[in-house]
């Protein structure tokens, strides 16, 4: 009677799936409900007005693009730095390797609110330097737009660097463990052939590292995409406003919570990270499957 364990398996998985999926039903239904409320119900007044409002009345497109630009750039940067650094940490036999790894892992226990004020001071100082440099090389009317891009406070660059720094420790860990499983023979061989560092990375390591990079990139993207505290504190200009802030502002901007609008925005906000998961899922098991010592 092999049927019973099978049945148990389906029952258990269905329960876990119900737990995982239930909250999404509410968001999906409420976002199409002209009369949405806090409670799960079948909409009587089907509408797409909640979605269109995000883009017509509010600056939904701007929020969305800014989030994509900033988080996308931070993800790419995390993958590049994490890939190089992870490789170095895997191959290095320096004494500081382990202390370095433990430090960057344990520093993650510091809740982000503890770092905000010091971080703001560091970035503001650097921001003033950037401003001086740009002032010297650019005509005055270009300064403001340039600062939007290169500014460290209230600018793309600052946001990208902060998010990268916050995601980097996990990326370094993932990629270091991943490279540990990639045989050293490949790079030894390339080294003996006289390949330069860049050649080795491009021709030998990059193809091998792809699953690891995808996994590290996925986690970085999802975590950075969901961060709201840093955009809350570091972004002020409406042109730079990002999705989580749009969401937070929509909440209680007027004296009642507009659940239809909120859920529509939440659904849109979830889409990119769900899509990212879809793309990178295949790489995950390969990454960790090799990366964990059995």
């Amino acid at each position: 009677m092999a049927k019973r364990p099978q049945l148990m398996a389906y029952a258990t998985l269905s329960l876990i799936s119900a737990y995982c999926a239930l909250p999404f039903f509410w968001a999906a239904l409420a976002s199409f409900d002209g009369n949405a409320s806090l409670f799960l119900k079948w909409p009587e007044d089907w509408t797409t007005a909640n979605y269109t409002r995000i883009f017509t009345v509010e600056n939904g497109l701007t929020w969305f693009m800014n989030s994509l630009i900033v988080v996308g750039a931070a993800t790419v940067l995390t993958m590049v730095l994490g890939g190089l650094g992870g490789y170095a940490l895997s191959r290095s036999n320096a004494w500081w390797k382990r202390p370095f790894l433990y430090t960057i892992l344990l520093i993650r226990v510091v809740p982000p609110p503890a770092l905000i004020v010091p971080l703001y001071k560091v970035l503001l100082t650097a921001n003033r330097a950037v401003q001086e440099v740009l002032r010297a090389v650019l005509p005055p009317d270009m300064l403001r737009p340039a600062m939007r891009v290169f500014g460290l406070v209230d600018g793309y660059l600052g946001m990208i660097l902060i998010l990268t720094a916050l995601q980097l420790p996990l990326a370094l860990w993932i990629l270091k463990t991943f490279f540990d499983t990639v045989s050293r023979d490949y790079d030894e061989a390339a080294l003996l052939d006289g390949a330069s560092l860049m050649q080795r990375i491009r021709l030998v390591l990059l193809p091998l590292a792809l699953p690891g990079l995808a996994a590290a990139g996925l986690f970085a993207f999802i975590s950075a995409w969901g961060d709201f505290l840093m955009p809350l504190i570091f972004i002020s200009s409406p042109e730079l406003q990002m999705l989580p802030l749009g969401l937070f502002r929509a909440f209680l901007r007027v004296n009642t919570v507009d659940w239809g609008f909120l859920t529509a925005l939440a659904v849109l906000y979830m889409v990119p990270s769900v899509v990212a998961f879809g793309f990178a899922r295949g790489f995950l098991v390969r990454t960790f499957g090799g990366g964990v010592k059995g």
């Binding site: 999802i222 961060d227 709201f228 989580p244 990270s273 769900v274 998961f277 899922r281």
Partner: peptide
């Protein structure tokens, strides 16, 4: 896997 992709505030 779905809940893992949900931003904190959401």
């Amino acid at each position: 896997l779905l809940p893992n992709a949900v931003p904190e505030v959401v």
